[in-house]
Nucleic acid binder design. Structure first.
Lengths: 167, 167
DNA sequence: TTGGAATGTCAACAAGGCTGACGTAAAATG
DNA sequence: CATTTTACGTCAGCCTTGTTGACATTCCAA
């Protein structure tokens, strides 16, 4: 623990390329773990990671419009539409015509969709919970700080809006 | 800063699903930022993220065999081979028959390959450096701790072997 | 009423994963 | 020495998930 001298002390004067490289590789390998558990569940179904992401953010921001979901996910509408269509066909997602603006479609999870989302996110939370417990509260705070500093500004705005409030 | 009550104190008794969800979404959005800069460079060339990963790890573990690279990257040999072939054809990577075991191919970056790798990793390091500076040394230590705890055990072994030593 | 915005859909394509099968060379093993 | 195993490459085919471009529909708003 704290074996790396460049992480000690108050300054980051010794922030070497070597130090940064370790962070980059940690990010790469950790992301594999991050997605591993949901991926295993999805592999049995006909779904992929894209379906998971859609389910997650539809659950998070209930009644979100397709356009809003697009900007969160950062993909094209054609790409999202393909995923969304299968989820709607399979009865996991419900698309309701907007009341105020009837061009908009508002997206909701059905009970079946909520069940799968719960299963996927619980698997992902379990790993995150275990990592948080192992690392401790101070490490968790640092983890979040670095991640937030790593986001693109436009993406960070999305994240911040989601983080606390409700859209 | 430190607005989240569950991150204060010594224990993680208040480690709620809400808290975990924020971590999950932070990871999702941060990874987008993490890959954004190299992706922009690669988009102009004919290459993708897979080429970047190959260049990175060939540079990291010079003279690595194809099999070793496969286990680091976690893909099939067919998938890696496709990427590797284009890199060799384009003169970015050199494949040398093993001296002791002549079945093995040892992989090296050419000067042209090293140049692209440097360009890609410098872009990625720049973002990482900026994030590290913004978050501070203690946060960086926590960041790394949580990431390491998040890895699959088998993957973590790979990471640890890479982290300090040289293969 | 007309322009533009939001959505959906069709077609075509590319990257990058995957499996399975096969071939070759060379090392390891009986 | 004969056989088996290993390392690598390659061909073929498939899937998911991303992309562009073109076009239709609906309907709000100027």
């Amino acid at each position: 623990m704290m074996a790396d001298p460049s992480l000690q002390g108050e300054s980051l004067l010794f922030l070497t390329d070597e130090q940064l490289r370790k962070g980059i590789e940690a990010m790469f390998f950790a992301y594999r773990g991050f997605t591993a558990d949901p991926d295993r569940i999805l592999a049995d179904l006909t779904y992929g990671r894209a379906h998971h992401r859609a389910l997650h953010f539809i659950n998070r921001t209930r009644g979100t419009t397709v356009n809003n979901l697009l900007s969160i996910l950062g993909v094209t509408k054609q790409s999202l539409n393909r995923v969304l269509r299968t989820l709607i066909e399979d009865g996991l997602v419900e698309s309701r015509v907007g009341r105020k603006d009837r061009r908009e479609r508002h997206l909701y999870l059905t009970s079946k969709g909520a069940e799968l989302e719960r299963q996927l996110s619980e698997a992902q939370r379990a790993r995150m919970r275990s990592a948080y417990r192992a690392a401790g509260p101070q490490a968790v705070a640092g983890f979040r700080q670095v991640l937030e500093a790593m986001m693109d500004d436009s993406i960070k705005a999305q994240y911040m809006a989601l983080k606390d409030g409700r859209s």
